[in-house]
Design a protein around this nucleic acid. Structure first.
Lengths: 116, 116
DNA sequence: CGTCAATATTTACGCCTGTCTATGTCTTGT
DNA sequence: ACAAGACATAGACAGGCGTAAATATTGACG
C-alpha cells in the first residue's frame, strides 16, 4: 500500500490562489497537476474515465477513442497517474483506471477559491 | 474594445469533466488555460497578482519577486494574458496586471464539477 | 509449456518552451 | 530634443515533451 501523498493532496488545505501569494513549494506541487491536465489528450482521457459508468474505464476502450498509438496513450495515463489524478487497477489482462475526484475537487478549490 | 471570447469563456457553460466526455475542441481550449497555469513561475505570478491589494500589481513589483530576467517575466505575463487569465493596463510608464477571477472560477468549475 | 493478447517500457526524434541577451518602443523629466 | 527608465519584442539555445516503433512483461488459455 502506498502511503505517500500525491502532489495535490500535499496542499489540500484549500488555500485559494487569490487569498495570498503561494509559496514556491506549493507552486511546484500544484503545477505538476496542472501540467498533467494541460494537454488536450490527457484532458479528454481524464474526462473519459471520470464520466465513464462506474467511474472507471479499461485501457482498451480508451485506446479506441484516439488516433494515437497504444504506447502514447499508456504514456499519458502514466502521467495522470503520477500526478495523483488516476488510480490504476489490473484485473486479469486488462488495466482499469479510475478518476480521483477528490484530486479534481482539491485542484478546483485551490484555483477557484471556492474552498469547502 | 475586444469582443472576442477568451478560451475559457468559450466553454463557460460550466460543464464538469466528469459529467460527460468533453469534445476535442473544448479540450483544446481548456488545455490552453491549464497549460498557462501549469508552470510554477506563472502560478506564482497569478497568485501574486490575484492576492495583491486592489486585485492588480505592477510589473515592477512582480519582477522583484523572482530571480529571473525582466523579459522572462514579461514572457510569462503575456502567456497568462493570452489565456485570458490576466488583464493588462498601462498607466504612464508602468504596466498593471489584474487577475480575471471569473476565468479562474470558470476553470475551477470545469475541473471540479462544483458548477454554480 | 507455448502462443496470443493487453499494457507497459525503452529508445529515438522533432518540436515546443523557458530562459537569457540584445534591441526596440514609449513615456517622463530635464 | 535628449536622456533615462519601464516594459515589450526578437533571436538564440538547451532541455523538456509528445509521439511512434520496437521490445519487454504479464496473464489467459490451449
Amino acid at each position: 500500500m502506498n502511503l505517500e501523498l500525491t502532489p495535490i493532496q500535499a496542499v489540500a488545505c484549500c488555500s485559494p490562489l487569490a487569498r495570498e501569494p503561494i509559496s514556491e513549494e506549493v507552486a511546484e506541487q500544484v503545477s505538476i497537476v496542472l501540467k498533467a491536465l494541460g494537454d488536450p489528450v490527457r484532458l479528454r482521457l481524464m474526462s473519459l474515465v471520470a464520466s465513464h459508468e462506474g467511474g472507471e474505464a479499461c485501457v482498451c476502450d480508451l485506446n479506441d477513442a484516439f488516433d494515437l498509438s497504444q504506447p502514447t496513450i499508456s504514456h499519458h495515463l502514466k502521467i495522470l497517474h503520477e500526478a495523483g489524478l488516476l488510480e490504476r487497477e489490473k484485473r486479469g489482462v486488462w488495466a482499469y483506471y479510475r478518476a480521483r475526484t477528490e484530486s479534481l475537487e482539491n485542484l478546483a478549490s485551490v484555483i477557484g477559491g471556492t474552498a469547502r
